[in-house]
Amino acid sequence: MTAPATSDAELAPAPAAGADGGPRGTGSTATRALGAVVLAGAAALAGLGLFGTPEDVVQGALVRLLYIHPQAATTAYIGCFLTTVGSGVYLWRRSVWWDLVALASAEIGALFTALALITGSLWGRPAWGTYWVWDARLTSTAMLMLLLLGYLALRKLPGDTDVRARQAAVLGLLLLPNVILVRQSVVWWRTLHQLPTLDVTGTNISGLQLFTMMLGFAVFAVLFVWLLMHRFRVAWLERQRDEVLVDEAIRARVAEGSGR
């Protein structure tokens, strides 16, 4: 592993030393503040979304999914985008920092993709009468999930860190182009056969409902950043453990053996 540049350490854990000298956690003042914002925002979103906003004339209580579903999907695509950017920068500059950003955003992206798919099918069951339709948007999101699972499967494999990072970077770099290719082909395929399924955004929303929806986007964005920072720090510490601590342990054993 190349020695991390000083700028690489920006998101690295604040050295709150534990008993053994290592950091005790991945929290820092900044992430605690972000976490508080997320909690407060989520509480406000739940309050407004579940109780504060009125039911829709057509969709009834179903409209409440509008406050979390598009937000989850958007965040998922942001995670996918960030993975591609991080992988590209890693291949170009070989910066460990960006490699870990790619890993962290892929994992969190997969989480939000799963959330989007689950909330989407929960909405689809009462609204369309079925959990799943082969709509362009649904199908391409499901394919995004599979592509992300493949990427994460590769990252989970043991082996040389540098080698794995380079392989993952190639996969990650192709992630967004693949999503675009899949999405485009699915769109053409479906529109040649049937009209696009009904448009959620066609629902007439305004006032408090619109505000709650926008609040949802903000809360999900902050949540994404918060999770990303923590996940990044965990990955960073794992890297440190693999690269540094093992070296130290080996040195200690060697010294022991030679009786020094």
Binding site: M143, L146, L147, G150, L171, N178, V182, S185, V186, W189
Partner: peptide
């Protein structure tokens, strides 16, 4: 080539490659 050096290549390659080839399957079938 990405999967070639891995011990799990037989199981990993289909998972990585088949979603990528979905556009080919759709286009060629149509």
């Amino acid at each position: 080539v990405l999967a070639a050096g891995l011990r799990v290549r037989e199981t990993l390659l289909p998972l990585l490659l088949l979603p990528v080839l979905a556009p080919v399957l759709i286009g060629a079938t149509r």
